[in-house]
Each structure stands twice: as C-alpha cells, then as structure tokens.
Simulated assay, not measured.
Amino acid sequence: MAEWKTVEHPMSTAALTKLLLPWIACLVWVGGFEAAVAAVPTEINFGVASVGLGGRPFVGGSVVSVVHVKGWLEEEFKDQGIKINWHFFKTAGPGVNEAYSNGVLDFAWQGDLPQLIGRASGLKVKYILGAGRRQYIYLAAKPNSSAARIEDIKGRSVAIHKGTCLQLSIARLLAAHGLRERDLKVYNMDGLAAASALGSGDLELAFGAFNLLALRDQGLAKVIYSGAEDDGRYGCSGGFTVTEDFLARYPDITRRVVKTIVKAARWSADPANRGELYAIWAKSGFPLEHFKEEWDSQDLKRKLSPLIDDFQINRYRVALEDARKFGLVRGKVDFDRYFDRSYLEAALTELGLQDFWIPEDAEGKPQSPIPHPESGARISAVSNARGPQGPEHAP
C-alpha cells in the first residue's frame, strides 16, 4: 500500500517569504487595479416609461428625449468606454418597475404613481432629479358620443392605462367632478391601444395624452377635456430615479449623469431652442404641430424644471395620499430617504445654475431660490413639504 509522507522543504521560512514577497506585492497591485476598474461600470442601463408611435424608441414632452437624441450621455462617458443602453417601455411605469426589480436598470424616468408603487413595494431606488410637473391629460370621445364634459361619462366605457401616473391624474379629475373610477366601465389599455380602439369606434371614451389629438384631426374623435383648461392642475409629476446599489458603487458616475440631464433641462428652457426641441419630440412619430399646440403657451423653464423643491415633494406626498385613498397603492414611503437632492445641487453648482430655476412652494407659488446646502446634504421632506393636502389645492 502506498504511503503519503510530509517532506520538509530545505528552504527556510524566512528565505521562502523573501522569495515570494515581490509576487505578493504584484498580486496586491493587481487587486488594487481591478478595484479601481470596478469603480467605473462597463454600461449604464436607462429606462424610459414611454414609447413612440408604433413602438418607436423615442418619446416627446420630456428632457429625457434631448439627452437621448443628442447622445449627451454617450458623449459624457465616451472616453471611459461606458456603453449607454436605452430601454423604452410600452408598458410605461409598471414595465420600468418590473425591469428595476429584475436588475435590468440603473436609472429611469417615470411618473409619480409608478415610482411610489415601486418604492412602497420595496424597490431600492432613490429620486435624484425632477423632470416635469403639471402634465396635461386629455379625454376624447367618439364623434357621435353625447358626452360633452366630465360629468357626462358616468357609466360609460372608457380606456385608462392603469398603474401609470395617468391613472392617478384621472382619479383626481374624476373626484373633482363627483365621480370615481368605479362609476365607469373601465378598460385597461395603453395609450396606443386606446387610441386605436377609439378611432375604430369600438370604444366610446379614452383618457390619454397628446396622442389623442391625431384622432381629433382625422375626425375620429372629439376632445371633451384638456389639461390646458386648468394649467395641468390634476396632471402628473415625474422624475429620475437610480438604484441604491448603483448610487453606492458609482457616486461620481451618478453625479455626471445628473449633470448631463440638468444641461438638457437648461437647453430645453431656452426659447431659442424651442423649434429644435419640438423636432426632437416629433421623432416619437407624433406630429410636431401637436407639440406646438400643447406647449407654445407654456413656460418650458417652469414645466420642465429639474428642481426637487417644496412643490415637487408636496405633489408626491399628495400623490401617495391620493393613491391610497383611491386604492392604487399600499405601504409607506419614507420621503426623507427617498429624495436625495445632493447630486442635483452638485450639478447646479458645477454648471453655475444655482439660481436659474425658480423653486415653488408647496402651493406652487414662486419663492426665493433654494439655499445652497452643504455638500452631500439631503432635503428634508418633512420640514419642507407640509403644504395643503389634496388636489383641490394644486395650482
């Protein structure tokens, strides 16, 4: 039977250590190099809670379109070889939440309701940048429908894209007119499917966005309500979020992403760029004339503000309360932990835009510029957002 024996090596421990020391140092250096490389991601996955006509990977009405079409994120990270992947979701906010939960996305642009649903359900994301407020919603009806106002639609068939911020806006609008969603015959359809059903006459009514204007122009529908009637009083707020994991691993990359989006918001606010902005939005497949119709009378600087001010925070507080009231969301959201304004403040400082956008108070009235907090400070949603609670107080 073979016998295994331990053989003593003639080299002393000290001599062996001296021989191996350069190799150990080399391994330590390689480990440090790999750690440095790991501080930069190989790719960034960006989610957009919308899609263009016919599934086109373009959207209108947001600064995210500017960043995407102009390739500003790609340019920002070109030298480091970081790939930017854009994901557009026909399923809108719910699709983004699902992608977040599956680890597909690092950043996303969404409306308030799906963001709150995701956070209340345990998604580990943070809100780092505003992107849109007082968004217009529309209600269109078949040309031969007798419905002429909101009060007329009780008991009728209507399309609503559930799980999106549009659903919450509609609930607010209905409540203001003495109605609830359960008073209607609701069909859950995305915007494109709803427009198709309405245009073919298979559906009497549909809530949606500017996509309904095309049906109006073709004589296939009539618009009986537009957010322009009340300056988007019941409309969505939106913004950009990032996963807590990405934020923790790549804080400087996050800062640069935010800075790039703030640059796009500044560019979009310039009246001289309005024509080009509409052209970018029209890549979504919707007519440029419809963007002009909706946006020519609006203050782009105010409407597309990236600020996380008292108004934006209060709208999210009200959105959560309304969503609970209408049975759209369960759970709680710790707003102090959800909102992180530090990256926005860093971008505003770096770009010299600290006083460019005028913050609004909880009621939507202009106020003095937000004090410049210390580096890394986070806004207190408790102390700064105790405005009136309820859609009747929204501007």
Rank of each mutant, 00 (worst) to 15 (best):
H9M: 11
K18T: 12
L21D: 04
P22Q: 13
I24G: 08
L27F: 14
L27Y: 11
W29R: 05
G32P: 01
E34H: 08
A35I: 07
V37Y: 07
A38C: 05
E43W: 04
G52D: 10
L53I: 13
G55Q: 15
F58A: 11
F58M: 08
V59Q: 09
S62I: 00
W72F: 11
K78N: 11
G81H: 11
G81E: 14
I82A: 12
K83H: 12
N85F: 09
W86V: 05
H87Y: 14
F89C: 03
A92E: 11
P94R: 10
D112W: 05
D112G: 05
Q115N: 11
I117Q: 15
I128Q: 06
I128N: 02
G130F: 04
R134H: 13
Y136E: 14
I137H: 06
Y138H: 09
L139G: 01
A140M: 10
K142T: 06
S145Y: 10
S145A: 12
A147W: 00
R149H: 12
A159N: 04
I160Y: 00
H161A: 07
R172T: 02
D190W: 02
G191R: 03
A197Y: 08
A197T: 03
A197D: 05
D202F: 06
Q218E: 15
A221R: 02
Y225V: 04
Y225F: 15
E229S: 14
D230P: 02
S237I: 02
G239Q: 08
G239F: 06
D245N: 12
A248I: 06
I253H: 04
I253A: 08
R255S: 15
I261G: 01
D270P: 02
A272P: 01
R274I: 03
R274S: 05
G275Y: 07
L277K: 05
L277W: 08
I280K: 02
I280T: 03
K283Y: 11
S284E: 13
E289G: 03
W295K: 13
L300E: 09
R302M: 09
K303P: 01
P306D: 07
Q312Y: 11
N314C: 03
R317S: 01
L320E: 06
L320K: 00
E321D: 07
D322Q: 04
A323R: 01
A323S: 13
R324N: 09
L328D: 08
Y338R: 06
S342T: 11
A347V: 02
W357Y: 10
W357H: 03
E360C: 02
K365M: 13
A385L: 09
